[in-house]
């Protein structure tokens, strides 16, 4: 097919192409707005499985405020340095990275993968302590992860929230989350 033919084909099918193109654009926009974000790469390749199985840690040991506060908190050097200081405990290059952070007093720039918008009040305590929801229900089987999750398992969209609230017959009064 030469160029002229191609032009002809395009001309003939212009409407269809236009529709296809716009569909792609719309899809891209929808993806951008509602879709999953790009894979997130964390500064340290943290191994949940190892810490849980070998070091016998539980979630709340590092995510200190899961049961008592709104935010569960992602541990940073203050928490890590309770165990990691001075001599490395393993041969992992990831631990070397961690020890560097601790030594220099720099904070580990963790990227947050679960979040709610500013106009939503989300409380871990409300869900974990009062609602007795297991971590696994929203965050998945983290204990089997050998490296950090690259995507959130569950998006905190209003639809998702309301679905669960309705299923479990808990309040879906706007004021419970928006104030």
């Amino acid at each position: 097919m030469n160029v002229i033919d191609l032009r002809k084909t395009i001309k003939k099918n212009s409407k269809r192409i236009l529709i296809a193109l716009s569909a792609v654009i719309v899809l891209a926009m929808v993806w951008e707005i509602f879709g999953a974000p790009n894979a997130i790469i964390q500064p340290i390749n943290y191994n949940h499985k190892l810490h849980i199985e070998k070091a016998k840690l539980t979630c709340v040991d590092c995510h200190l405020f899961v049961e008592t506060m709104a935010a569960a908190t992602i541990p940073n050097i203050e928490v890590c340095s309770d165990c990691h200081s001075g001599e490395p405990l393993s041969k992992s290059p990831e631990e070397v990275k961690l020890l560097k952070y601790i030594e220099s007093g720099k904070r580990i720039p963790w990227k947050k993968i679960y979040s709610v918008p500013a106009h939503v009040y989300f409380s871990h305590r409300r869900h974990v302590t009062i609602g007795e929801i297991k971590c696994i229900q929203c965050h998945g089987n983290v204990q089997e992860l050998t490296e950090p999750a690259s995507h959130p398992l569950w998006l905190a969209t209003m639809k998702n929230c309301i679905k669960c609230h309705k299923e479990n017959k808990v309040t879906y009064d706007c004021l419970a989350c928006h104030h």
Partner: peptide
């Protein structure tokens, strides 16, 4: 090697200062 972190924390009184986090990602709103 086993570290009883729970006990360790008890000794510390469970205190680890304020922890700053990364930024809120609000791409979905």
């Amino acid at each position: 090697m086993e570290i009883q972190r729970r006990d360790f924390l008890k000794l510390l009184g469970g205190a680890s200062g304020a922890i700053a986090l990364g930024l809120y990602g609000c791409r979905n709103s």
